[in-house]
Amino acid sequence: MVVHITADNWAETREYLRTRSARFTALAVQAAATRRRATADWSVTDTAAHVATLARTCSGLVDPGHAPGPFTGFDDLLERTVVDTVDEFNEVLLERLPDRAPRELARATRHDVDHILRVTEGADPTAPVSWLGGSRVPLAGVLAHLLNEFQVHGRDIANAARLPWRVPPREAAPFFEQFLVGVTDYGYGRLLDGHGPPPRGRVAVEFRSEHTTPVTMALTDGFATVERPGGEPDVRLSFDPTVLNLMLFGRVSKARAVLTGKVVIRGPRPWKLPGFLRIVRLPS
């Protein structure tokens, strides 16, 4: 396995999840009366409810004996969901959570995060967990994904309420290092289906930041793999993890990320990067 998961970065991810979730729930209650939308489709309370459903989902994934799924048919929904249908997945989860009382949402979210942290204490962070579209991720990646949801949607809510919200790059790093690299390394199943014709041949992109272990993601006739750096990649991408995450989820434009120097693109064939990102993508 190439994914870099250690006792130290696993402990960091758990602590980041604990503290960021507490900040998120406090922010969501504080901003609940805000009339501006947090996203194009969701109010502040809708956004808080969305994150609550993901906390409940992750609680079931890491402890299926306690909560095998939030509702009957959940496993089938998880299996058939791919990147391009995540919005439908989210809407189904929201329909199952009609309560929008801000303090109740905060209480439920804190309860589920506490449960996640309790049942995963002492667990193997590299253990595989079933994910969307028949993919698998390391246990650490499940927590890193949930952490990123608190970070990104906390920003959405804070912007709507005109309140401060800062995510340090080191705290944003687990999403790339443990989830993105993890799901590619462990097997992404049908998660990336629906992208259209892939680029021909091989495209190799080396990712480096001050907060993650260097890694190369390669796309060979549409099939994505991760490798340890070596040889000459087509693209060398240096990044600030906070900005890269926001860019991948459509919160920061690619042009802004590059112009601010938070994402730096080098290498002998940088024109290959758009084709790579058309396949290796996230819902935005």
Rank of each mutant, 00 (worst) to 15 (best):
I5M: 07
T6G: 01
D8T: 15
W10K: 04
A11R: 14
R14Y: 04
Y16D: 06
L17G: 02
R23V: 11
R23S: 13
V29K: 06
A31V: 04
A33G: 15
A33S: 15
T34R: 05
R35Y: 07
R35I: 07
R37T: 05
T39P: 04
D41L: 14
D41R: 14
W42Q: 10
V44D: 03
A49Y: 12
A49S: 13
H50D: 01
T57V: 14
L61A: 05
D63K: 10
H66P: 09
P68D: 11
L77S: 12
R80L: 09
T81M: 07
V83P: 02
D84E: 11
E88N: 07
E88K: 11
E91M: 15
V92K: 11
R96L: 04
D99C: 05
A101P: 13
P102R: 09
R107H: 12
A108H: 13
H111F: 15
V113H: 02
D114Y: 09
I116P: 00
I116K: 03
V119Y: 00
T120N: 01
E121G: 13
E121F: 11
D124E: 08
D124H: 07
D124N: 08
S130E: 12
G133N: 11
S135F: 02
L139R: 09
V142T: 06
V142I: 12
V142S: 06
A144Y: 00
L146Y: 10
Q151M: 09
H153D: 00
G154C: 02
I157S: 01
N159H: 12
A160R: 08
R162P: 08
R162Y: 04
L163W: 10
W165Q: 03
E171G: 00
P174Y: 03
F176P: 05
E177Y: 03
E177K: 04
L180N: 15
G182Q: 07
D185Y: 09
G187E: 03
L192N: 01
L192P: 01
P197K: 15
R200T: 14
R202P: 06
R208H: 04
R208G: 05
T212N: 07
T213W: 09
P214N: 05
A218F: 07
L219M: 02
G222E: 02
F223I: 15
V226Y: 00
V226S: 05
P229C: 05
P233N: 06
V235G: 03
D240C: 11
P241L: 09
T242L: 10
T242S: 13
V243N: 02
V243Y: 05
L244P: 03
L248V: 01
G250V: 07
V258A: 15
K262H: 10
V264K: 06
P268I: 10
W271G: 15
G275K: 06
F276D: 12
V280M: 11
R281H: 12
L282R: 12
P283E: 00
